[in-house]
């Protein structure tokens, strides 16, 4: 399978993880650019993944690999690594493409290591100028302040790549017809060393930011808990929900349920006003869907300005109170 691409999809509940089809679109594109064939794999308990494999059979793929085993009923790194190492040895792809999910972060680096390889992780773009030169994978350094372009060193090994949320469009997946094949990995219960529990939530979520039309969100730049009242006053003036980036919730200044980002809520308001938020990628993936983004930050190089429609490089301690006052004035006038 020279230049072949194998996309490893992730399930969630009885369906797909939302990033699975983004990875599939990335894999189809890479295969087309490199002149190879694209296949996809889904892992789980055989009966549970059969309908998902049937859905994949309607996509433009060479083969859909249904990797079923009772020991794959629940995710474990040991189970996934063993099953995928065997599948890769069988299919012999040149590229393995995965969505950069929490689950992938848990097993893919070790899977690559087992094969003497390195995962090129959290990739935002894949560029193929000339197929013979191979692809260039773009990933972010310094919390998004730099782009670094990577190539796989060659030597005939498998190139492992995970793609960042939102970097490829899931609706770009091409339809077609493909053959479903079952792959039965040899797994031993004794070799699965971790015992995972069921997923749970700490407390019932009482704040649903996902439907808020206006959000004022605060980050590290606020400096101290005491200063939060500035942002709260702005939120009140705007009739907005208040949200935050992770460090603010880590510090306990706002409850965890107000966190926007990969480990918090995903929002899509009409207006997202980011105050003192640098825009680390873990935060951006949670708010990229906002219709209008206004960012106030003292650092002109902050990545939040990459996604902002309107930017203010300045001191939030001056701009925020002035804005609150102006909004209150406008409401009265």
């Amino acid at each position: 399978m020279s230049n072949g691409v194998l996309v490893v999809l992730e399930t969630k509940g009885a369906g797909w993880h939302r990033m699975s089809f983004e990875a599939l679109a990335a894999g189809q594109k890479l295969a087309a650019d490199m002149g190879g064939a694209c296949s996809a794999a889904v892992l789980g308990e055989a009966a549970a993944i059969a309908p998902l494999a049937a859905e994949l059979a309607t996509k433009r793929l060479a083969t859909v690999w249904m990797v079923g085993d009772a020991l794959l009923a629940q995710y474990t790194a040991d189970g996934w690594i063993a099953a995928l190492a065997q599948l890769i040895a069988e299919v012999k792809p040149k590229y393995v493409v995965l969505p950069h999910t929490y689950q992938v972060r848990d097993f893919a680096p070790a899977l690559a290591t087992r094969m003497g390889e390195v995962l090129i992780g959290d990739v935002t773009a894949i560029q193929v100028a000339v197929a013979a030169d191979g692809p260039v994978f773009v990933r972010q350094w310094m919390q998004g302040k730099l782009n670094a372009e990577y190539r796989h060193g060659g030597d005939g090994g498998v190139c492992f790549v995970s793609v960042q949320a939102g970097s490829f469009r899931g609706d770009a997946v091409e339809s077609g017809a493909s053959e479903v094949k079952t792959f039965a990995p040899t797994l031993e219960a004794a070799k699965i060393r971790t015992k995972p529990g069921e997923a749970f939530r700490e407390a019932a979520q009482t704040v649903d930011l996902s439907s808020a039309p206006v959000i004022v969100s605060v980050g590290r730049g606020i400096g101290e808990q005491e200063n939060l009242k500035l942002v709260e006053a702005l939120a009140t003036a705007l009739g907005a929900e208040i949200a935050a980036s992770r460090p603010i919730c880590d510090a306990g200044w706002l409850p965890m349920e107000r966190q926007v980002g990969s480990s918090g809520q995903t929002v899509a308001p009409k207006l997202y006003l980011a105050v003192g938020i640098s825009g680390a990628i873990q935060h951006l993936v949670g708010m990229k869907g906002a219709k209008t983004v206004i960012a106030i930050n003292k650092d002109a190089d902050a990545p939040i300005f990459e996604v902002a429609d309107i930017g203010v490089v300045g001191d939030l301690f001056e701009v925020v109170p002035a804005l609150t006052k102006a909004i209150e004035g406008a409401a009265r006038g």
């Binding site: 090129i120 782009n147 990577y150 190539r151 030597d155 990545p303 300005f305 930017g311 203010v312």
Partner: peptide, 21 residues
């Protein structure tokens, strides 16, 4: 020997036109 290779590092190009006030 490195498995992957960093070929270029650069500041990101803006995808969105941000109006700076």
């Amino acid at each position: 020997k490195r498995v992957d290779e960093v070929v270029k590092v650069s500041p990101p190009t803006r995808v969105k036109r941000t109006e700076m006030l």
